[in-house]
């Protein structure tokens, strides 16, 4: 039983009318790992998670969670998976304490037990002070924490987190990361989605990159990053500088293709090694090209996408707008 996989999904398909939102995705999440699903808006992350959580019917393919068939035994699946959706699914008309108590009761805990667990969770997520206030007075971060707390009442062995840190400030995001790591130390398995490579990099043991309903890559964060370079030099040429010449210089120095962004004169250059940034800057000055701004950053999702698919993550939203 030790090598029982947490999630084993094969060629999952979901259609919304004529539109295929999920187009044959395979996922294999091992027990005890954090598995990240990375993709831009509309890639099909939420849809995939909702199918696995029995919230959406599966249109094609096969999925098992800890060996239990998702389509055939939804009630068992619901006992195995704690779901924290992209949008908080807590009752706005109840207080935080009442929410937790209700969810605990619904899962069969006796009233007194439900009360003490609600108290414990409120403590653990720093919500004790706000516990009896109406949710309408909660900030986005507090709501997210309550939502996550609600998914942990029965300590499910598998936890789905759909964009757990979107909209959180950096400090709260860091706390959320710590909480997620703790859950894994307790023995839970985590399947999370994110739009940030950085987040997947920090948390995930393995990442699946999905795009337009298909999986385009699956690997460890390190392996994915080396495909796009360790970091990126972002620079803006000064007004009227010759972009084509700059591209030539970069190509000659690094053997890498700079990614031109839609704004004129801006380019992102993948760097195999951050120390090579200086070479590029010197090379550009020698060629007589002025620079108006420069920074070195970690590769963005957009660059991962470009490297994996040959089109940027932004194309997706343009395509959506056109549809």
């Amino acid at each position: 039983m030790a090598d029982l996989s947490a999630v084993r999904a094969e060629s999952l398909v979901k259609n919304f009318g004529d539109f295929r939102a999920v187009d044959g995705i395979d996922l294999h999440v091992r027990q005890g790992e954090i598995f990240g699903v990375l993709g831009p808006n509309g890639a099909g992350k939420t849809t995939t998670l909702r199918m696995l959580a029995t919230l959406l019917p599966i249109d094609g393919g096969h999925a098992e969670i800890f060996g239990v068939d998702v389509r055939r035994e939804p009630h068992r699946i619901r006992q195995l998976v704690g779901v924290t959706g992209q949008y908080a699914s807590v009752d706005e008309d109840l207080t935080a304490r009442e929410n937790l108590w209700l969810f605990a009761r619904l899962q069969g805990l006796p009233s007194g037990r439900a009360k003490s667990i609600a108290g414990d969770l409120l403590d653990r997520f720093g919500l004790q002070e706000a516990a009896d206030r109406p949710l309408s007075q909660f900030s986005g971060g507090m709501r997210r924490r309550l939502d996550l707390a609600s998914s942990l009442i029965t300590r499910p062995p598998l936890i789905f987190l759909d964009e757990p840190t979107t909209g959180l400030d950096p400090r709260t995001r860091g706390q959320m990361w710590d909480t997620i790591r703790e859950l894994v130390m307790d023995g839970s398995t985590i399947l999370l989605t994110t739009q940030y490579l950085d987040e997947a990099d920090q948390l995930a043991d393995r990442i699946a990159v999905i795009d337009r309903g298909r999986k385009v890559a699956e690997d460890t964060p390190d392996a994915l990053k080396t495909q796009v370079g360790e970091s990126t030099l972002q620079l803006r040429l000064s007004e009227g500088a010759d972009t084509a010449l700059a591209v030539d210089v970069v190509r000659r120095l690094l053997g890498e293709e700079p990614v031109l962004t839609p704004e004129s004169g801006r380019m992102n250059i993948p760097l195999p090694d951050p120390n090579r940034a200086a070479d590029v800057l010197i090379g550009l000055r020698e060629a007589g090209l002025g620079i108006s701004s420069v920074s070195v950053a970690k590769p963005t999702l957009d660059e991962v996408f470009f490297a994996l698919t040959g089109h940027g993550a932004d194309d997706e939203s343009q395509m959506e707008a056109a549809r």
Partner: peptide, 25 residues
């Protein structure tokens, strides 16, 4: 009852998926 998978216990025992699966209804 349906989900007596055990609450967040203060002693933080690890979660054993196989045991939880066996307990599901």
């Amino acid at each position: 009852s349906a989900a007596t998978a055990g609450p967040v216990a203060p002693d933080r025992r690890g979660v054993d998926p196989a045991a939880v699966v066996a307990r599901t209804t």
